[in-house]
Simulated assay, not measured.
Amino acid sequence: MQLDEKETRRSSLSQSFHRDGVTVQVEIYQLAWSDGWTLELVHADGGWTIWLTEFATDEAALAEFTAQIARPGLRNLIAGTLLYFPTIH
């Protein structure tokens, strides 16, 4: 998701993440009109996963990502449907 830098505040916790042959860009950002932080994964193949719930802090958003990949694993987290729609949490 491309956003105008004037409209967002990108967290220093945003990072590239690789596990089990899968790489995603973890983007954590705050929109200018929001008090919460958004968590988004940009897949290497161009897909994306975005959480609809905002987080109180950027640390909470990263903690959610960490918890999610511990349960189903990164590959399962970003897996799409048969038509490969992005996952929304």
Rank of each mutant, 00 (worst) to 15 (best):
L3N: 07
D4S: 12
K6C: 08
E7S: 13
R9H: 11
R9S: 13
R10T: 15
S12D: 15
L13P: 05
S14K: 10
Q15V: 05
S16C: 07
F17N: 01
F17G: 00
R19E: 13
D20R: 06
V22C: 07
T23F: 05
T23C: 06
A32D: 12
W33N: 13
W33P: 00
G36S: 12
T38D: 10
L39R: 02
E40D: 14
L41Q: 02
V42M: 15
H43F: 08
H43S: 12
A44C: 10
D45K: 11
G46D: 07
G47A: 14
W48H: 15
W48V: 11
W51I: 02
L52M: 09
L52V: 05
T53A: 11
E54V: 08
F55C: 04
F55T: 03
F55G: 02
E59R: 11
E59D: 09
A60C: 01
A61E: 03
L62Q: 06
E64I: 00
E64C: 06
T66Y: 00
Q68V: 03
I69N: 01
R71W: 00
R71F: 00
G73Y: 02
G73N: 05
N76G: 04
L77I: 01
L77A: 03
L77N: 00
A79R: 13
A79S: 10
T81V: 10
Y84M: 10
F85R: 15
F85E: 12
T87R: 15
I88W: 13
H89W: 09
